[in-house]
């Protein structure tokens, strides 16, 4: 498969594909972060996670419209406002979901899977009824368009760079929250031993709710970032959800590092393979690879060693 390319060309191809893979990686990390902290904390797989992301994307779309119509002067910075709106709306929706739905089902993790799938169907149809079945895109502000030339054959898109930077910041913030805040301490305690944390006076129910809200809020930010590199439709969340599940499961549920590492592996192998094979075969091979590796390490790459 390397026939017909010179060494220099191959290097550039790999660099370009690696960059495309890095953008995919950023989207995976942003989506998987929320899912991973929810799964790690409560053992709940949120099938509606993709829809919370799309909710964030639609919020960004609406904010960009409002800025365009009423305050066009501030358009270059609309994205930061949009991100905050997306976080708050998706997070609030997440809190409501936890209160109405999830908290009744903690004892039955498989049933949460079905119930959140039902929720995702409802959300998809709601998006379709409100925003229409057609895909919508936002207009990027001027400074985010274009590409930076690195060498004469390699160039990188600015919006891609922006999404990567954003991923870095969000990941850092989550890590900081998890390892340096009181909430993070409580989360880690509950993950390690729920019963003992309850006995030690931690309100586990409250920690659960906050975690779920935060996870959904991060999904909202992911959706917001998603509008930078693609268009949004009512069912766009479904496209990424299986990959995201695999990222979380592959990485090991309770490990932030594992999530990042597995997102990196999956996105890089997919985008590199995509160049040499067709897109669908690349995806098939990547998924099969992950399933195969999961057989070797059933609990994921990075396992938290706790006694249960």
């Amino acid at each position: 498969m390397f026939m017909g390319y010179s060494l220099g060309e191959l290097g550039s191809i790999f660099a370009m594909q690696a960059f495309a893979g890095l953008i995919l990686f950023s989207v995976f990390v942003l989506m998987a972060l929320g899912l991973a902290i929810i799964f790690g904390q409560m053992g709940v797989i949120n099938m509606a996670h993709g829809e919370f992301m799309i909710l964030g994307a639609y919020m960004t779309y609406m904010t960009s419209h409002i800025f365009q119509t009423y305050i066009p002067g501030a358009y270059p910075v609309y994205f930061f406002v949009a991100m905050a709106v997306a976080f708050i709306v998706s997070g609030a929706a997440g809190l409501a979901t936890e209160w109405l739905l999830i908290r009744h089902l903690y004892a039955r993790p498989l049933d949460t899977l079905l119930a959140t799938w039902g929720l995702s169907l409802i959300m998809q149809q709601a998006f379709r009824s409100i925003f229409g079945a057609r895909e919508v895109g936002v207009e990027l502000p001027q400074w985010m368009m274009g590409a930076l030339p690195v060498t004469d054959v390699i160039e990188v898109q600015i919006n891609g760079l922006f999404v990567m930077g954003l991923t870095l910041i969000i990941t850092g913030a989550v890590a900081l929250l998890l390892y340096r805040s009181r909430w993070g301490l409580q989360v880690r305690a509950v993950v390690a031993n729920r019963t003992m944390s309850g006995a030690a006076g931690i309100d586990t129910r409250r920690v659960d709710r906050l975690t779920f809200g935060l996870g959904c809020g991060i999904a909202g930010i992911a959706g917001s970032a998603f509008t930078m590199i693609g268009s949004t439709g009512p069912t766009a969340g479904q496209l990424y959800i299986v990959d995201t599940f695999l990222v979380v499961v592959f990485g090991g549920a309770q490990s932030l590092l594992g999530t990042i590492f597995s997102a990196f592996t999956i996105s890089q192998s997919q985008s590199t393979l995509e160049f040499f094979l067709t897109g669908s075969m690349a995806k098939v091979l990547t998924l099969l690879l992950v399933i195969g590796l999961l057989m070797l390490r059933p609990q994921g790459l990075f396992v938290l060693k706790v006694r249960r």
Binding site: H104, R108, D111, L114, A115, G118, L121, I122, Q125, A126
Partner: peptide, 19 residues
């Protein structure tokens, strides 16, 4: 239009109320 709402509602109702 209603079908997806009904289907989603069915999922949730069955799981929550009539497992």
């Amino acid at each position: 239009e209603l079908w997806l709402f009904a289907m989603g509602g069915l999922f949730i109702a069955v799981v929550l109320a009539f497992p």
